[in-house]
Design a protein around this nucleic acid. Sequence first.
DNA 1: CGGCACTTTGAATTGAATCAAAGTGAGTGG
DNA 2: CCACTCACTTTGATTCAATTCAAAGTGCCG
Lengths: 218, 218
Amino acid sequence: MVRLVSVCASLTDDELALLEQLAMPTHFASGDTLFTQGSEAHCVYNVTAGVVRLYKLLSDGRRQVVGFALPGDFLGLAMRDAYGFSADAIGDVAVCAFSRAAYTALVDAKPHLLKRLHEFATHELTLAHEQMMLLGRRTAEEKLICFLLGMQQRWARLGKPSVTVQLPMTRQDIADFLGLTIETVSRTFTRLAKDKTILIVPGGVRVMNPERMHAVAA
Amino acid sequence: MVRLVSVCASLTDDELALLEQLAMPTHFASGDTLFTQGSEAHCVYNVTAGVVRLYKLLSDGRRQVVGFALPGDFLGLAMRDAYGFSADAIGDVAVCAFSRAAYTALVDAKPHLLKRLHEFATHELTLAHEQMMLLGRRTAEEKLICFLLGMQQRWARLGKPSVTVQLPMTRQDIADFLGLTIETVSRTFTRLAKDKTILIVPGGVRVMNPERMHAVAA
DNA sequence: CGGCACTTTGAATTGAATCAAAGTGAGTGG
DNA sequence: CCACTCACTTTGATTCAATTCAAAGTGCCG
């Protein structure tokens, strides 16, 4: 279902068959851990359904969410032998898991696939640079607006374009993604709702004033 | 000179010869622009000497430095058809430039090289995740200490291990990298020097208390 | 109905930003 | 060789955006 937008989009039939043979379909319940920062990297994952929270922890408990993986996204590309961040399920999640050995063999055998994965990695890097700009230089309101527009765009690319942005993650997750506290996120949501910039609905927000939001994000 | 630590380290002799044929050695004076965010991506660059500042700008002038490229580093990997950030020389810089056409052809012909570039990209992504943690969740003092240790480590990998960390960039560059103001960076340097954690020397700092610094960074 | 996890709101505090003013030092030209 | 400039850096005083501390409010689920 997510193949059209994922790595698989550009594969030949025989490559797809090979991939299918090596993929281990797995699923996780809400809150389950896919893998933990620092643990040995056994598998690479391709999310097929649901949303995954990716985060790093400091020894004193401070948390930075480095991303939210949506269907089609790859996890574990940036590993040496240990995962660089933790990943757990937000709601029910389905993935295709590939053992590291299978992944390595596949990549060596199919340069075509490697090229596609490399495109993925460089796209991720571009997003990471934008997130640095956001974390280092934007105000709380700008952070939240950029986040909402970013999520809207990502759902749209997955074939779910809507003025209502689904937000399956908690306020704390959003705060830890944007480098804010939960209170600041909550207050900023409330202020944007009072402005009539957004409307807060169960499980997400409805974009009411996209012009203003895009102007702020620009 | 930088080949041992760069992409070229794992190439065969004939691959190296091919690379050399396509590389256009270029050099830039202090402050020169290699390329600008949003402009058409003509070239990929491999830095051979000097330091390059990589940054993004917001329309109102706010700047985020997304990285400092040292000898051996690649620039322009994460491009679609326009550069995602600007790059300019800090001091004199030498690079090998590759036209986009040459780069694409090379990558298609040599999966071996692609694999190496992909490793580079995923390493960059890991660093970007660490920078997100730093920007989102660390204090000014922690940011500066992590930056100094990071630079020390990078110079060390290039074969210049030293307790004196060379800092060719300005305080403003450091501030824009760490998501701080120049005043906060200056004050924090002064405080660390008063602590005897570091000693400020022309063009850099000397690490005086690495134990404390590593403890803060952990 | 009560418990629990998450969210919102309010008041007080604070770390870093802003505003303002010297201080430093390399390069230039008289 | 010294005064002058210019860019960069440091230091001080004040302000403010976001955090922290504190307390309700909400709604889902057994």
